[in-house]
Amino acid sequence: MKRGLGLLALASATLGAALAHGAVPEAQPVNDAAVTGAAFPAKLSDFGFFRDGARQVPGARVYPYALNTPLWSDGAEKLRFIYLPEGMQLTADGEGLLKFPVGAAILKTFAFGEGDARRLIETRVLLHRADGWVALPYRWNAEQTEATLALTGGRIDLVTPAGEAISYAIPNKNQCKTCHSSSNKVVPIGPKARNLSVRWLGDMLKAGKLDRLPPGAATMPVWAGYTAKSPAEPFARAYLDVNCAHCHQPGGGASNSGLDLRWEQSDPHAFGIGKRPVAAGRGAGEYEFSILAGHPDQSILLYRMNSAEPGIAMPELGKASVDRQGVAVVRRWIAEMK
């Protein structure tokens, strides 16, 4: 009886919010054939991941989770879920990415607006099939009753929480892979033990959904807890890992730049200090180094973070405005460097 209680508690915030709005349909089992088959299901509801999609109430064996330091996407609220088929569990692999069994799925819904004004924009789905992961984007309709496959992505005009009017881009299927790629294979990015809370991992362990509590769990800081008194370095390095390192690492989409922004990279030159650009083009601005220690305003990395202009802006995808807080933290980190 004790097993699963923690998970219930975790889900309770979502459930509670949903229950307050009325009855929630019975949970139906997830359509495993849709997850593991060869086709690209046309509708998000074909999978049956949600008891109530509009309210993002997860169905059976769909587990909400959060990341200590999340990827920033124009300030979108993100609702993350993992689906594990009956009898299957995640396998810990040190501080790194949890290993998912074939048949599992990872979901991320992007929403803007608060309370009753919240609009779901898209749900991105990663399906672990026998021949590898498949990434598919689903776009929510205006009525919020269904999300349909958007293989070619799309654009939506919206206003960010920071009050900026932007043209928000839903990625196309190939663009999903641009970030979710390692040595040309689609891979998950987010659920690494180091970026998950010990509590969530412990709950999954107790529920039998994780084989063991990995060492090195939750070593990345909780971004929301950042204050002016926090040390800048771990926050900045966590931010760069989560927002940049999916491309900027060996085998990633930006491997040819030689810039490696992974959390575990300890060589200062590799993560940018005193490193000259290779193929940055006008993205380099007037500056000579990715990071010039002590000089954030002469550092290409910050210059590109601080731009929303295509050809200059980094990341290249999933960003139409500047993350002021991200820029502030990385700026402080570079400024404090000796």
Partner: peptide, 12 residues
């Protein structure tokens, strides 16, 4: 009038 991506066409 490109609004996003780092290149016109990407082949992988």
């Amino acid at each position: 009038s490109q609004e996003g991506s780092g290149e016109g066409l990407l082949v992988t």
